[in-house]
């Protein structure tokens, strides 16, 4: 039951593939349509961040359980430049790229648990979890 799936992120087509992978896992876990949409959107934001800032990355999808609750945990990681100021990176509208700066902060609002680990020069790993209600 603790199926783990993973996918590489190296192109914008891969970002679409990540969305599909997360969608099928979200349906399997029993997330509502709205929660499916939220976690898929968060996955899309995080996968694009890995692609834009690190050039490539990967996503691992885990089905997790907590008592009778099931959830979906995603780990999106890259070996890019890392984030020197995590607090700032989570602020809406702040970006070092060309986007809107909503990716990280927005993703955090779309999930139940959000954990960001980053080491400048080594990379970034974002873990998000959405629980079925």
């Amino acid at each position: 039951m603790n199926a783990e799936r993973e996918a590489a992120i190296a192109s914008s087509a891969d970002v679409v593939a990540v969305r599909r992978l997360v969608r099928s896992a979200a349906i399997e876990v029993g997330l509502s349509l709205i929660d499916q949409t939220k976690i898929i959107t968060a996955a899309s934001e995080l996968a694009r961040n890995a692609l834009v800032y690190a050039g490539r990355g990967e996503v691992r999808v885990h089905v997790v359980e907590n008592g009778s609750r099931r959830g979906l945990k995603l780990v999106v990681s890259d070996e890019g430049p890392g984030i020197s100021d995590v607090e700032r990176a989570l602020t809406d509208g702040w970006t070092t790229g060309t986007g809107l700066g909503l990716g990280l902060g927005g993703s955090r609002r779309l999930v139940d648990e959000f954990d960001l680990l980053s080491e400048p020069g080594k990379g970034t790993s974002v873990t998000v979890t959405k629980w079925a209600r």
Partner: peptide, 10 residues
């Protein structure tokens, strides 16, 4: 679901 998600996204 898309409308809800977009608003939450900001």
């Amino acid at each position: 679901a898309v409308a809800i998600t977009l608003v939450e996204l900001g």
